[in-house]
Nucleic acid binder design. Structure first.
Lengths: 233, 233
DNA sequence: GTTATAATAACTGTATACAATTATTCAGAT
DNA sequence: ATCTGAATAATTGTATACAGTTATTATAAC
């Protein structure tokens, strides 16, 4: 109930399907960073014509997952440490806004849900089931988004999180340890139920900056791996 | 030198022209908030075919200047006080990030330019030439964007500023006083040259929140005017 | 074997055709 | 006069055609 916020799409179109599919390929690095989006023809493994495919790519371009080259071609946006840092810092500030708004809207129900998620984060973390820890952690943040009711900021955060998902994927690929201190969520929740906006804001900022370190490390590993590969050739 | 940051567009296309023209119409409220984007055919005053026009509208949709109705039609995104507040608060935080980065990159040259702009803001304000005050104020903020070199955040801010321009336009239409205290820029600059990031961040936040008040007032006037108009009919 | 140049192929941007959907008009029933 | 519903018109999403551009290949000269 607290983890969706999508509006009602009208009809589902080929463009939207293409958009989702290409986006997934990019986020999972099936289409690798920097790789040329091979001729719209090749993109036609999706079995749709150029028009909706173009439209999907143009949307991805606005969302910065794809860049247009000077000749009109598209490439997957390259990975960069500078970008990770910039996005994470931005996200930390934006989630600060959202947590303040969320505190204004807290209900018994929402507190209960957040408590549940926090406990699950702790539990799965203790069991070293980090996949689930990550999932529940994500749900925790999503719940804050929903409770905040700040649609403007949430839309931007969703875009940023999409971009960050690529780095998360790299972290998994390169076995960068991703276990977030499960205590952090507890501290954040505590500040929330005490309606301490300043503290909640501060703690969530810290929490996200911590996540940044993991992502940066992942990129470094990725770049080293690439360098090694191209030298070994 | 400090007030542009656009990349190198490849070839200039009909889509881009349509995008710019429609955007300008929306920002200047020639296409009014909430108004249906009359059949792509009508949009064809721009003398281009449906394909690039569609593409332009879809880009505007991602940028939230236009919304798609359930039947596939487009409308100009309605104005709302909630949106103004959310955008301004977001912008205040993001400019906080940028000013910190900018302080890291300060050079004698950039300080000189910022000083010049600050003086011009004061001067034109004293002469009650508020059009120029606004212009120079805008350049001041743009200079900070450029100096920060934080392309990720800057791109988001540009989008937000586009959306805010509609409200600025309303403020002019409804004669809401827009004179920003010219001292505020001076205080910000002072914090910058002293490399006091915390203070600079705090002051620019305050400054932007102050601007929010003006915009909110403008929307209230606009809504009252509309209510009066529809009752008087 | 390398480089230059011409010919060919592939691709991009835009216009337009076509089918499916949605809105509008008009006639007839109440 | 008002409402209902069929017929018509307008509009949308997608496919495709066409022209102009960019990339690639092949051929010839050195």
């Amino acid at each position: 109930m607290f983890d969706t916020m999508e509006g009602n799409l009208g009809r589902i179109s080929a463009k939207d399907i293409a958009y989702e599919q290409i986006k997934e390929k990019i986020l999972k690095c099936v289409l690798e960073p920097g790789q040329a989006i091979v001729n719209e023809k090749l993109g036609k493994e999706l079995e749709i014509s150029r028009t909706p495919l173009r439209e999907a790519l143009q949307r991805l371009e606005v969302e910065e997952l794809v860049v247009r080259n000077s000749n009109g071609t598209f490439s997957v946006t390259p990975i960069s440490i500078k970008e990770v840092k910039e996005i994470f810092i931005m996200r930390s500030k934006l989630e600060g806004i959202l947590i303040r708004d969320a505190i204004d809207n807290l209900t018994d129900e929402s507190i209960e849900y957040l408590s549940y998620l926090t406990k699950m984060v702790q539990l799965t973390s203790r069991l070293e089931n980090y996949k689930d820890t990550e999932d529940f952690g994500g749900k925790f943040h999503n719940a804050i988004y929903t409770i905040s009711n700040n649609t403007t900021v949430v839309k931007i955060i969703f875009q940023l999180n999409d971009r960050l998902n690529r780095y998360r994927h790299l972290a998994h690929q390169h076995l960068v340890e991703i276990k977030t201190s499960s205590d952090e969520h507890e501290v954040i929740l505590d500040a929330m139920v005490n309606r301490d906006k300043d503290r909640a804001e501060m703690e969530i900022e810290k929490h996200i900056i911590e996540a940044m370190r993991v992502a940066v490390k992942a990129v470094e590993q990725y770049e080293n791996a690439n360098k090694a590969a191209s030298e070994g050739k």
